[in-house]
Amino acid sequence: MGSCHGHQMCAIAAPEVFGSDELGNATVLIAGDIPAELEGKARRAEANCPERAIIISE
C-alpha cells in the first residue's frame, strides 16, 4: 500500500476487507484470498481508491 494516503474510501466500500492503522492508512484485515462473497465489495474498494493504491490480483 505504498501510495495509500488514508482516504478510507476502501474501508467505506468494504469494511470487512479494509481497516485503518493508527495513522489512518489502510490495512488489509483478511489474510490470503478474498472470500467469494466479499469479492464484489473488494472490487468496489479497488475502484474507489483515489490513489489507485489497491490492486486485487486474480
Binding site: 494516503h5 488514508g6 478510507q8 468496489r44 475502484a47 474507489n48 483515489p50 490513489e51
Partner: peptide, 20 residues
C-alpha cells in the same frame, strides 16, 4: 453510487488529513 473515486479531499501527499 458504487463507483465514486471522488477527490473532494484532494489527492496525493497533501490529501485532507481531517477527512474522517
Amino acid at each position: 453510487r458504487e463507483h465514486n473515486r471522488h477527490v473532494a479531499f484532494g489527492s496525493g501527499i497533501h490529501r485532507c488529513a481531517g477527512s474522517n
